Simulated assay, not measured.
Amino acid sequence: MPLKERLIGDPAAEIRVQTFLKGEPITTLAKGRVYVVVFWAIWCAPCKAAIPHLTALQLRHPQVPVIGVAVDWTDLGEIAAFVRDQGDAIGYRIAADLPLSPGERQGTMGRTWCQAAYNTAVPTAFIIDRDGRIAWIGDPLESDDPLAAVVEGRWDLAAAREKQEAVLQRDKVRELRRLEETIERHLAAGDRTGLLQAYDVAFAADPGLEPLRGLDKFALLLATRHAAALDYARHLIGVVVADQIGPLIRLGTMLAKAAEQGTPAPDRPPAAANLALSAFTRAEALFGEGTDTITRVILADTAARALLVVGRTAEAADRARAARALAPAAFALEPDIDLAATISQLDQLVAHCDAAAGRRDGATCRLDEA
């Protein structure tokens, strides 16, 4: 059954949870009362970081129930243990979403609230007004002002709905949801031909979808139809994502990796490598003062690998050194990046490139041969 949209201004869906793990249970949203419903997960670092903020929010608005609904879980005991360990740090109600079926991670409220609002990120907060309507959806850390406005009766619901609708249209959210649902059906059936046709039909009906999902089609072609994949990559680079740095670099990286592995055609890896370099050259031409250092490192690193494949070893060495020089500053403040390991990998790449250039400049060299 198609999922009914529930956007700002629409009546909120039901509270349907498996159990409350903290605080007095709430089973219905009473008219005349404002609520905050926050979707979170125990594996989500931003969700944990939002706990003090939500506790403070509950203290400032004792008349507004704040309900944290745990989603994407399989072991209720893990959630209960997490809540117990947090103790008084969690100063608001906590519930566990009701699984759609036993053992399934997807839950009822995750579907009827988050998916229905085209917002599946966690943490996500919903503010419900006194008429039971969704008044605001967003990051819990940004909920203070909207909540105060709703509580004080000065929230502009129509303007909030108009703003959300503009984003849905701009980002083609509904169209992407329909395409993703079609893709899931073909994947479940193992129908690769139907999957490719789904992309083609969607892109023909709405060309604006191709810059958003063209790389997915390319990945599918790369795994099944090598010549067609390279032809489509040329189309993407020259037309579809020609002015988008991020997609150009992602496409170039996919091509460079395929070239290293000999994926498109074991006897002709330079074809993919040259296309990768074309994508990188176009991306680099779009760089400006605002281009972040991490992006520059990624491009230099992957370009060096593509240059090795086509035998331009001296240029590969220059690119590898550029990536190595930028990496410490680029990744120093990234908590999810192992800086030492990254530097070590780049040092190895520099050594490979230097060795290749020193042996016979202009010769083709694969990294696994160095």
Rank of each mutant, 00 (worst) to 15 (best):
I183L: 15
A96N: 01
Q169M: 09
G87C: 07
T19C: 09
P328Y: 07
D206S: 14
H186Y: 11
L236F: 02
E284Y: 02
A283Q: 03
R178A: 09
L349A: 00
P211A: 09
N274A: 13
A322R: 15
A370T: 13
S278Q: 10
H235E: 10
K172V: 01
T342L: 12
C114G: 10
D336Q: 14
D206Q: 09
K257T: 13
P269V: 04
R130V: 06
A117P: 10
L307M: 05
R282A: 13
Y35H: 01
K257Q: 14
R282H: 02
F218V: 01
A316P: 04
V167F: 03
T295N: 01
A227D: 15
V122E: 01
G252I: 02
E260F: 08
A45G: 15
I79Y: 00
D144I: 02
A256T: 04
A341K: 14
E142G: 10
T182A: 14
A204D: 14
Y199W: 10
R161W: 02
A70D: 14
I249E: 03
G153V: 03
A276T: 09
R192I: 14
G132A: 04
A189K: 12
I294E: 15
R133M: 04
A227M: 03
H186C: 08
Q348S: 15
L236E: 01
A233L: 07
T295F: 03
P207T: 07
A363G: 11
L221H: 04
D75H: 12
I128L: 05
V239E: 15
A198N: 00
Y232M: 07
G110H: 00
D336N: 11
V310L: 06
A149Q: 09
Q18L: 12
L275G: 00
D336I: 11
G252D: 06
A357K: 07
H53N: 09
L367R: 14
D75F: 06
Q115C: 12
H53E: 12
L326E: 12
A276Q: 01
T342M: 13
T124V: 14
D131G: 11
R321F: 09
H61Y: 15
F20N: 05
A322Y: 04
A279Y: 02
V71Q: 13
A265Q: 13
R324H: 10
D156T: 07
P266A: 15
A229H: 02
G288N: 06
V66D: 00
A285F: 06
K257N: 14
R321I: 13
R178N: 01
Q244W: 01
T19A: 15
R105K: 08
T28F: 06
L179G: 04
E165M: 08
I26A: 09
G194D: 03
R16I: 02
D97L: 02
A125R: 03
Q58C: 03
I128H: 00
A121Y: 08
Q86W: 12
G311E: 12
P146K: 05
A363H: 11
P211D: 03
A233H: 04
R360W: 05
E181R: 10
A285Q: 12
G32K: 08
Q63Y: 04
T263P: 04
A329P: 09
P65Y: 06
L98Q: 12
G190P: 05
E152F: 06
V69E: 00
E142D: 12
E184I: 01
